[in-house]
Design a protein around this nucleic acid. Sequence first.
RNA 1: GGAGGCAUGGCAGAGCGGUUGAAUGCACUGGUCUUGAAAACCAGCAAGGGUGCAAGCCCUUCAGAGGUUCGAAUCCUCUUGCCUCCGCCA
Length: 421
Amino acid sequence: MLDIKKIRNNTDDVLKALSKKDNDISLNDILDLDSKLKSLTTKLNELQAEQNSKSKEVGQLKSKGESSDDIFKDLKVLSEKIKAFEKEQKELSSALKKALLEIPNIPHSSCPEGVNEKDNIVVSENKNTRDFNFPLKDHIELGEKLDILDFEVAAKMSGSGFPLYKGNGALLERALINFMTDYHLKNFDYTEFFTPFLVKPESALTTGQLPKFSEDMYHIEKDDLYLIPTAEVSLTNIHKDDILSSNELPKYYLGYSACFRREAGSYGKDTRGLLRVHQFNKVELVKFVEPTKSYEELDSLVNQASNILDLLELDYRVIELCSGDLSFAAAKCFDLEVWSPGEEKWLEVSSCSNFEDFQSRRGNIRFKNSNGEIDFVHTLNGSGLATPRIFAALLETHQNEDGSVRIPQCLQPFMGISEIK
RNA sequence: GGAGGCAUGGCAGAGCGGUUGAAUGCACUGGUCUUGAAAACCAGCAAGGGUGCAAGCCCUUCAGAGGUUCGAAUCCUCUUGCCUCCGCCA
């Protein structure tokens, strides 16, 4: 959520910055509601002040045992007026809030300008570290041959887009989760959480999935709960409505979760295998930091996530997203993409974003700095990482001619085997 | 799922329907004292909005939403959360 004061006082700058993300945004309704609300509030406050002082008078007179009938007449009229004003104020402020929640975050000035993913910038790339001298199989073929993935049986029970891992496949999946979790815990200062997978609407509002993207999430109607599309939602909401003290910042949180996405509107895209699924596993990293530190924290977040790919001996590249390709809530974002030799495509496995104060305003997550002033924290998050595409890339990258797959060193302690065959 | 109890500031804990944004204690911050620290004493200490250069002034907020009343932390209704008991259950 953007600061209404910023919109009010720097309308042109805000609009210009927003247009880099989305050319179609108008702030007119918001400005209109804001000025109406402001003048109404001023009038209301005056009436309330009058009511307060007269009510106090009544109390004083009463304690002296004197009559207060004249004041009563005034108060009765005032009371009616105030009630009408309050009602109007409530309507205006909820309309304003609703409108504000629909406005995306402003891209950071360092974001390359652009319209879509074609304008993204490749920051770094390492590829073709391995020469294959045999015909490659893709992960679906490998998964079937090794009897570690079964999409048909999964579809039988849940429909398409739900993976079923079997035997060493289940072991590999679990090893990936444990390896990534342990790596971040051991090497960086993260606190581990295991969060709920179902959250209230207001939690999804904090992180920005609601109100605009309700179609992307699974919703349990009976209880009005949403299945989390990422642990970002639950991890970020740990501090909803909190005022943290500056000496407890930065806070680094980590959590594994299953992630659920309807992927509405993406039918026909990446439908095969593990590339786009409705349920997947992810280790998520979330940071709560002081505003002045958030960009260096973004850099370290990208590094932390990429280290995993190095250790898994996978080819990957780092992409800096252009303004037009940024998500709704992000001010700046780097994606990590892993190379899939079977698909001959780059696959997004992590998205590391700085949301600045966009989420913290929505969730009212603040901190008190050393001067005693209260301000919104900056939040960041990054996948560290999402498993299915890694699973696929790993099978394809480390496959041998006979269809067996080498397990990289870092995973072996978690699996107890050095290859799947 | 059934029955009951509770919900106040960072925490603990007062609070008759009327000068209560809220006593008190702890914590915290500043000061005095001390070589330093502790103790003691003094002072400050909620958030949001408006207005003002500022000091300040005004408004709102006692889980949330409604209601009664000229006036609600205080009375009523609903919702949510926590606790206790019963049922069910991995």
